[in-house]
């Protein structure tokens, strides 16, 4: 069942200049992106910095204005709804933020932080509220006694878990995870990721997982899309993308994953050189004269690539 369908999404930011600060041009942060999320799966969006992956994620929760295109959530177009009309959908779509240090209000206690969504949508007595918050704290592996502490008393990993607990309290259907582990160190990353997977099974969650760490994406995602300059250049099952990349950008991205074995180091260097040469020679097969990636073309039932 399709939970979220993003259709030809465009998010353009105006560049103002000149005498009256007129709009002189647009930054095309997201320029025609389409993908679908099935219920219960994890869809990864990868790409380099500035490729528009976070902007896409934020557009789904309406933190960015959508220039054009559709965001269909259970058949309703979120992009066309006003702020008021979208409120009921907030319950079903939640977001986990990248930076655990700025995503929790430093002046609020953990109880108030995690209970904020509950207070917006449900009428609960303080005792019920406390119980729910403590349950979720327990679920994310924090001591239920920590409800009276402030965020700065926790480590980065613990803070991120508070953020995750906050996004779970309303039992959402879709969670946008915007690089949820990139601010954490590697040992904590694994912990948080495994724990996100456990939660996915327990609550039947669907994740839109935004990230730039290819290892993390492969570990987490069933399907993924590779973004480059605001466009999707390749989309398919994770294995297809990793084992059989078709687009030159994806190939280079995957070749850039560091290999831990020193024996193959020379081999890898050669591969990267070869890809670099291929990128130069076959540029026009993958990008049009403006440097824009072509529209996606299916090459198998699940695998789509941006080719001419």
């Amino acid at each position: 069942m399709t939970l979220l369908k993003v259709d030809n999404l465009k998010v353009h930011f105006p560049i103002r200049g000149g005498f009256f600060r007129r709009v002189v041009d647009h930054v095309k942060a997201v320029d025609g992106v389409s993908f679908e999320l099935q219920q219960g799966e994890t869809y990864g969006l990868v790409g380099e910095s500035g490729s528009g992956k976070s902007t896409t994620g934020k557009a789904v929760v309406k933190l960015n204005n959508v220039t054009s295109g559709q965001i269909l959530f259970e058949g309703r177009d979120l992009a066309a709804l006003s702020r008021k009309e979208i409120k009921p959908f907030r319950k079903d779509i939640q977001m986990i933020f990248q930076d655990p240090y700025s995503s929790l209000n430093p002046k609020k206690r953990v109880l108030d932080i995690i209970a904020e969504p509950l207070r917006n949508f449900e009428r609960l007595s303080p005792a019920e509220e406390k119980k729910i918050v403590q349950d979720f704290l327990d679920k994310v592996g924090l001591s239920p006694e920590s409800i009276h502490k402030y965020p700065h008393e926790f480590s980065g990993g613990q803070r991120q878990r508070i953020g995750i607990a906050r996004s779970l309290t309303l039992k959402p259907k879709l969670i946008i995870a915007d690089e949820p582990v990139s601010a954490l160190d590697v040992s904590v990353q694994a912990q948080v990721l495994n724990f996100l997977q456990d939660l996915q099974q327990e609550f039947n969650l669907t994740y839109l997982f935004v990230g730039h760490d290819l290892g993390v994406i492969r570990h987490m995602c069933d399907r993924m899309g590779v973004m480059y300059r605001g466009r999707l250049v390749e989309e398919g099952n994770s294995d297809e993308i990793y084992d059989n990349p078709q687009h030159i950008y994806t190939k280079r991205l995957i070749a850039a994953i560091p290999d831990l074995e020193p024996e193959v180091r020379e081999e890898k260097v050669q591969l990267r050189k070869k890809l670099s040469a291929e990128y130069e020679s076959s540029y026009s097969t993958f990008f049009d004269e403006n440097g824009r990636a072509y529209d996606l073309k299916p090459i198998s039932s699940t695998h789509r690539v941006a080719l001419q």
């Binding site: 929760v61 939640q94 977001m95 995503s103 929790l104 209000n105 609020k108 904020e116 969504p117 906050r166």
Partner: peptide, 25 residues
Amino acid sequence: LDYIHASQTLGTPHWKIILFQLLPN
């Protein structure tokens, strides 16, 4: 900062964000 964005995605109305999230800071 993200905590303001978080409040927005959590469905908190503007006036509440201004009074209870922004003001204390």
